[in-house]
Amino acid sequence: MSDRRNRNLVLLLLAAGLLLMTVPLQESIHELRPHVFDPERKTKRVSAINIGPMPAVIAALGGFRTVAADVLWLRVERDFHGGNWWEIPSLLDAVNQLDPHFLLAWEVHGWHLAYNLHAESETLVDRRHYLGRGIAVLEDAVEANPDSWELTKELAWTLYDRGREPWRAAEYFRRADEFPESKSYVTRMIYRCYEGVLDIPNLMEALEYARNRHTDPNVADDVQHQVIVNDNYNWWLQHKDDPLEHRRQIVKENTARAQRSRPFYLYPDNPHWDVCPHCGLPSPKGSEFCSTYGHPMKPSSGSSRSPGGSRPPAEATSI
């Protein structure tokens, strides 16, 4: 009887000793996977105290956050193509809660709010609301995934393109640019931000920076980057003290942008579009084939023009 008790005591002590031996292993795991175990981690996946969306809680019970996120993601996909746009943000909220490392979901979430819903909104208040939410979502995304240059870039782009916050945008582009896998256009976006608001000192600094980055002559992308940046650099070197030229440049760019979004046939001298001789639809300037139907853009003498329904070529509609 006491024999057994002694043995059980020894076994229990043994078990306790072994349990103590797991402590450093667990602690090293905490250090190696901070996005799972760090109590200060940026997004606690699903907090047990502040119960988040119900599907998240249920999925968390079995460790199936990722799969649940997938299922909701498929529903997002369906709603998006089904035109059910206003339901999507709540689904994407759940997806982001379930799987805060699903980059595409963050990206789509931010884009959907700041672009699609922003554009679909009928009042200015709504527009501002959705733009703010889109930016906030992307900020959360960057906070949850500080390792992702794509999300950082996405936030920067949204701030630049929609938020009209070029300085913040430049800051995030700079951050995205620090990642080794970042692309060269991110580097160029830094000075583009300052360009738009004529922040000349920052612009020159950013151009200098861009000239010193991506300089590998064996990488085609880097060579192209150098050509573009040097072009810009030289232009600004020439005109940096000429406010009139700046103004002219801005007007030119704004016109170009406006033209890009206006009906092409109102601008027969539109520098950005060519019109397909077969279907009459616009394609980017210099395209070899029509971007809608793939017709050859150069009218071939032999081929007969497609009959009814096709628009006449641009020359014919000039106003």
């Binding site: 043994l14 306790a16 000793g17 072994l18 103590l20 031996m21 402590v23 450093p24 090293s28």
Partner: peptide, 21 residues
Amino acid sequence: MGNLPFAIGFVVVVALLAVTH
């Protein structure tokens, strides 16, 4: 940080195994 509990645990386990070998 985890070294102290590990050391204690290790000593306990080894001691028990040695005593009861």
